[in-house]
Design a protein around this nucleic acid. Structure first.
Length: 572
RNA sequence: CGGGAUGUGGCUCAGUCUGGUAGAGCACAGCGUUCGGGACGCUGGGGUCGGAGGUUCGAAUCCUCUCAUCCCGACCA
């Protein structure tokens, strides 16, 4: 392609509404333009990068036995009502009615449509397993879109769905996708971790998120510095503390005037927060539940929700607490509290701890589980911190920020049951399809790659997903020899199957250098005054800044070699 | 949805407090000089200040409503 003919509107300054680096650089480099909040146009360069990612995704998915199709974006409400998600999904689902007053929505995901397709067309175990995917624009009416392509309302996603006849088959399919995903993100040149993710009420470890490591990520992931343990914050566990075997002392009521917060109470009682159990009240599907935690721990609401098998939980406000317990917040304790109680497993390890006395201005010392109060459920319901130890090897844990670019999930039969999607097994028995779903944020990958690869001058694309592999700069369009050499080199590259763009604009060299750095094409070739002097051109490697000189004749071969090397390195 | 902020040529921003009919840099067009890290000079085109209403002799500036965008939080396949 010719720069002079291509729509590449670069900017010297970042538009004021861009916050993160990928957003700024994609706007400045002429990759994208915003149309409305969370809705972007992909310009030629942006689309070229997206197409590269799509191609890698398609190759690996096909290799893993999946087949591509394309499902409708506009979907009738009937299907969503049948699955129950017309109610459940909430405002993120953009709904509208057509001219015949039929309710419809824009597809945020396609479990309903694919399940409908399969239930209508596949009826036998002989047809299984089958794995279908599409690459398509999705629309989710996010409450708060932000950071450009990182969280748009409209975005490009690869979503795949598998249907198996048996549990073991479904697990095999899941593992195939796991392998394919590792290859896809590696091939995209991304540094990433696959982490255990919350799999909701289904349970088991059949959900993994693929997180690109970057400070601007919106998710937190927990990794072990020693072993391979890695998990999403909502799922991450910590090694459990050894149980305290101290002898139980006598329960003692003590006045703690005005001391409500954990820190204040502990200071007053001269104990550390890990010797206190705090009592929080949650409203769980409409009923108050007491949640017990060690003083220095915090609730992980997703874990709590899973433990209680609840649809909706939220922290109660002061009034709801008083209505439920008759005690003002700050003095709540489990002993004698007449509502359902759940405790974090760490509470079970403690002895002789402090609790609220359920009376204003009083706490209790030397409380003990079972002797002084009973609980209805116990489990891991707290948030892991960097002070905790790895649940697998007891090594030190690290919290890092990540961008979720992929998520694989073993769905089981939840959708096939709600949509009554069945097949006949070899015994002639009617069975529900066992499903899995597998998503990749294609447009988000491009943003994540830039978050991970940039410098003060601009983007630094990994070779496999760069819009072009090499950019040739004609540094003097007025000089016939230089122009001739640059054009010849460009043509030679194209002939050799190298994806090349030539900057043939009638601009000064400085502008071309700046734009080239900004746009981030991995290889750049300068054809300018050194060519006039001694027939040399320079190949500059964007990532390292290294510059190599070659005669114009040798350059194409060298470029080809560099491109292939870069593709291979990134293939590991 | 709660909190905060911003809307002035294509972009970045000044002017708003202390009303007097709009400015800079970049970008754009023409000419000339330049030409290896976003050149310089001259000339020129382009905005009625997010929108509506109001106060006033007079509103970018004051008031009311409204729309949009961004940030923090809550929420989130």
């Amino acid at each position: 392609m010719r720069f002079s003919k291509m729509l590449i509107p670069t900017l010297k300054e970042s538009p004021a509404d861009a916050e993160v680096v990928s957003h700024k650089l994609m706007l400045r480099g002429g990759y994208i333009r915003k149309l409305a909040s969370g809705i972007y146009s992909y310009l030629p360069l942006g689309l070229a990068a997206i197409r590269k990612v799509e191609k890698i995704v398609q190759e690996e998915m096909n290799l893993a036995g999946a087949q591509e199709l394309l499902l409708p974006m506009v979907q009738p409400s009937d299907l969503w009502k049948e699955s129950g998600r017309w109610q459940k999904y909430g405002a993120e689902l953009l709904r509208f009615t057509d001219r015949h007053d039929r309710e419809s929505c824009l597809g945020p995901t396609h479990e309903e449509v694919i399940t409908d397709l399969v239930r209508k067309n596949l009826h036998s175990y002989r047809d299984l397993p089958i794995n279908l995917y599409q690459i398509q624009t999705k629309f989710r009416d996010e409450i708060r879109p932000r950071f450009g392509l990182m969280r748009g309302r409209e975005f490009i996603m690869k979503d795949g769905y598998s249907f198996d006849a048996t549990e073991s088959g479904a697990e095999e399919t899941y593992e195939k996708m796991n392998v394919a995903y590792h290859k896809i993100f590696s091939r995209c040149g991304l540094k990433f971790r696959a982490v255990d993710a919350d799999s909701g009420t289904i349970g088991g470890s059949f959900s993994h998120e693929f997180m690109v490591l970057a400070d601007t990520g919106e998710d937190t992931i927990v990794t072990c510095r020693n072993c391979s343990y890695a998990a999403n914050m909502e799922k991450a566990q910590a090694a459990i503390s050894p149980s305290d075997n101290a002898e139980m002392k006598d329960l003692e009521k003590i006045e703690t005037p005005g001391k409500r917060k954990v820190v204040a109470v502990c200071d007053f009682l001269n104990i550390t927060p890990d010797k206190l159990v705090k009592t929080l009240i949650y409203i769980v599907d409409g009923t108050p539940v007491a949640v017990l935690l060690r003083g220095d721990h915090e609730v992980q609401e997703v874990k709590l929700q899973n433990l209680l098998n609840a649809d909706e939980i939220r922290l109660a406000d002061d009034k709801e607490v008083f209505d439920a317990t008759g005690v003002p917040t700050g003095y709540l304790g489990p002993a004698g509290l007449g509502i359902k109680k759940v405790a974090d497993q760490e509470v079970g390890q403690m002895r002789n701890f402090a609790i609220g006395a359920n009376e204003k201005n009083y706490h209790m010392l030397n409380a003990n589980l079972e002797r002084d109060f009973e609980i209805d459920a116990i489990g891991d319901i707290r948030t892991v911190t960097e002070q905790d130890l790895c649940p697998k090897c007891a090594g030190p844990l690290e919290l890092t920020k990540g961008i979720e670019v992929g998520h694989i999930f073993k769905l089981g039969t939840s959708y096939s049951e709600s949509l009554k999607a069945t097949f006949l097994d070899s015994q002639g028995e009617e069975k529900y399809f066992i499903m899995g779903c597998y998503g990749i944020g294609v447009s988000r990958i491009v943003a994540a790659a830039i978050e991970q690869n940039h410098d003060k001058d601009g983007m630094i694309f990994p070779m496999p997903i760069a819009p072009f592999q090499v950019m040739i700069l004609n540094l003097s369009t007025k000089d016939e020899d230089i122009t001739h050499a640059a054009e010849a080199l460009y043509q030679k590259c194209l002939d050799n199957g190298i994806e090349a763009i030539i900057d043939d604009r009638d601009e000064r060299p400085g502008i071309k250098f700046k734009d080239a750095d900004l746009i981030g094409i991995p290889l750049r070739v300068n054809v300018g005054k050194n060519f006039s002097k001694d027939g040399q051109v320079e190949i500059k490697i964007r990532s390292t800044g290294e510059t190599l000189s070659f005669s114009a004749d040798d350059a194409p071969e060298k470029i080809k070699k560099l491109v292939e090397e870069a593709l291979h390195i990134d293939n590991l």
